[in-house]
Design a protein around this nucleic acid. Structure first.
Lengths: 151, 151
DNA sequence: GCTTGACCTAAACTTAGGTTTAGGAGCTAA
DNA sequence: TTAGCTCCTAAACCTAAGTTTAGGTCAAGC
């Protein structure tokens, strides 16, 4: 059994945030003794899942839906499966977006490194991309072309 | 020259969102004709950068800071370089977090697929992880152990 | 016996990133 | 000439995910 303070330390969440999650229905089965919350291993497992789903961009409400389905029993297994399949898709898309962002950032890192060496970016601003090193040229094209030309 | 509506279509942003960005100072140099905004290629390049930095989780205020530095000229090159280096780190961390989330999600997908086949997750709830297929066992350990034991 | 610290609730407040609304201008096609 | 677009501003409104505040209980240690 863990107090709210212990859970707070263990998961690096504020006590208020945990109370807020409880208020939003994320611990429908948490026990109490004299009004004081007592988290058990099942609750810890819940928090693990909650944290993971949060990291993957899921909202509190959707997470609550999942936990409600868990409490409803076997009749909701398909829904839960579907939810995780969808979330998997979303994570893949998010990683793709971050990769795209990374291409532009990497180009900018090269650009400002170059500018830093020269003390100015005067001659870099309108540089002909064909004279860039092949690797940098590729980053430039990936981060500039794809999005504009796909319209 | 592009109207706000054209930019909206091109980047799949609402007209109000673009006006909001302008209000927040993200287009310090946008031209106007009879009060109507006229975006040029430099503005389009800005929006490309804005979209990318937003996707990577940067706030509007920070993006504005960057654009302000651009307008200040060569004296801020080091700051801009540093900003992109930092943002690169942040993207790497975000991808790592998503990978962690993916491990748990993949485990859950296996779990609910199995439950779906059986029609219940009764016997899965307290399964001994050692009898899981090696691949699934690994996912389980990655998504459960690392975070708890690292405390 | 009193203070300190961990716990509790309810309700107000905060912040970011927009959206919505209200009111108005200017072009154009029927 | 009037309806329908696209544009404009200012200001109010919205939502999620907490945080903060105010007021209170209870046990432990000095």
């Amino acid at each position: 059994m863990y107090s709210i303070g212990e859970i707070s330390d263990k998961f690096n969440l504020t006590v208020s945030a945990i109370r807020y999650y409880d208020k939003e229905g994320l611990f429908p089965n948490v026990k109490r003794k004299n009004g004081i919350r007592q988290f058990d291993d099942a609750d810890v497992e819940s928090i693990l899942v909650i944290e993971c789903l949060k990291k993957s961009g899921m909202q509190i409400k959707e997470i609550k839906q999942f936990l409600d389905w868990c409490n409803e029993g076997d009749s909701t297994i398909e829904k839960r499966l579907q939810m995780f399949e969808n979330q998997k898709e979303k994570i893949i898309n998010q990683i793709d977006e971050l990769q795209d962002a990374m291409n532009l950032i990497n180009y900018k890192c090269w650009y400002y490194n170059e500018a830093s060496k020269r003390g100015t970016d005067r001659d870099l601003k309108n540089i002909n991309i064909n004279i860039l090193p092949e690797q940098i040229k590729e980053l430039y094209i990936k981060s500039h072309n794809i999005k504009i030309s796909s319209k």
